[in-house]
């Protein structure tokens, strides 16, 4: 009985450790989006010039209609957004937030919504390119097993 309890305890510890590793080691793709967006009947125009720093990394500059991507690791990170004037010289507004994606994978941050001090600035990430139809020619670097290949008749 004691041995059984020890085994169950070891299993529980390993499971907890696994969840912990998943939580602290997860990489999140963060899309920075500076496009005009419609939300609740209101239009939020793209910012003329914005500088974004994520998790203390080098800042990224975004112009209207720009979208950039970066990766951060860990359950939380800090976001610093500097809304600049149209010449990119003076900072008009600085916004600092702490984001906690936790177990979630990717996210998209809307700069116009963030600049408008709205709480719904975290958007679902854009979906990837559509899959090619089944009868498309497959790329050569993929494994193709000719299951229905006819045997040589010669």
């Amino acid at each position: 009985m004691r041995s059984f309890i020890e085994r169950v305890a070891a299993l529980v510890v390993i499971l907890i450790a696994s969840v912990g590793l998943f939580y602290i080691g997860r990489e999140h793709k963060v899309f920075l989006d500076n496009k005009t967006i419609e939300m609740e009947g209101q239009s939020f125009r793209a910012l003329k010039f914005v500088r974004v720093s994520v998790a203390g990394k080098d800042p990224i500059e975004l112009m209207p209609r720009d979208r950039d991507l970066l990766a951060v690791v860990g359950p939380s990170f800090k976001l610093k957004v500097e809304v600049m004037d149209e010449f990119g010289e003076d900072v008009e507004k600085t916004i600092e937030r702490e984001l906690k994606p936790g177990f979630d994978k990717d996210m998209m941050l809307s700069m116009p919504l963030l600049a408008a001090d709205r709480d719904d600035y975290i958007l679902p990430p854009p979906t990837g390119p559509a899959r090619p139809p089944e009868n498309d020619v497959k790329p050569t670097d993929e494994l193709v097993i000719p299951l229905d290949a006819a045997p040589p008749t010669d």
């Binding site: 390993i14 590793l21 998943f22 080691g25 990489e27 994978k105």
Partner: peptide, 16 residues
């Protein structure tokens, strides 16, 4: 697939 990077990724791969 789960995008676990660094040492946690290696240890988790070992646990799996």
């Amino acid at each position: 697939d789960w995008s676990i990077v660094g040492i946690p990724g290696i240890v988790l791969a070992m646990i799996i």
